[in-house]
């Protein structure tokens, strides 16, 4: 029988948009039927453009000694950059993931990191 992985992330007050350098708090929950090698929270950004995507894991928090079923609070200090943005040619989006190891089963939540907690919109101007 295939092992079952139930993973979820809840952010404090349901807030998903933050100032750069801000504080992100929440609860990671999981219930798994197979032995876990570990659990991690990964904060990453992905930049997508017309030719490809760049991905960087900005922070990894190891959740030590996970039980089979658990709810665990966490607090992260968010990075200063890059800001979430939508442009004419590229976008930058942030994601917080809860990852079960070694199988890399994931739960993820999209977040915004930008001044005023609003993604930057880059308008295209005439060529210079």
């Amino acid at each position: 029988m295939k092992p079952a992985y139930e993973l979820s992330l809840e952010l404090e007050n349901g807030v998903t948009a933050f100032e750069p350098g801000g504080r992100l708090a929440g609860i990671a929950s999981w219930s798994v039927s197979a032995p876990l090698a570990g659990l991690e929270l990964r904060l990453k950004w992905i930049s997508r453009g017309h030719g490809g995507r760049d991905l960087k894991i900005a922070d990894t928090i190891v959740l030590p000694q996970p039980l089979a079923t658990e709810r665990r609070p966490f607090i992260l200090t968010l990075p200063e950059a890059p800001f979430s943005c939508e442009g004419a040619l590229l976008s930058v989006r942030w994601q917080l993931e809860l990852v079960a190891l070694p199988v890399e089963e994931k739960a993820s939540v999209a977040i915004t990191i930008a001044p005023d907690a609003q993604a930057i919109v880059l308008g295209a101007l005439p060529a210079v």
């Binding site: 930049s47 997508r48 453009g49 030719g51 490809g52 995507r53 760049d54 960087k56 950059a81 890059p82 800001f83 943005c85 442009g87 040619l89 590229l90 930058v92 930008a114 001044p115 005023d116 930057i120 880059l122």
Partner: peptide, 15 residues
């Protein structure tokens, strides 16, 4: 400007 993008450079995308 205060609300604009900072520089960054990836293999495919760059500000």
């Amino acid at each position: 400007p205060r609300r604009t993008m900072t520089s960054f450079a990836g293999a495919y995308n760059e500000i």
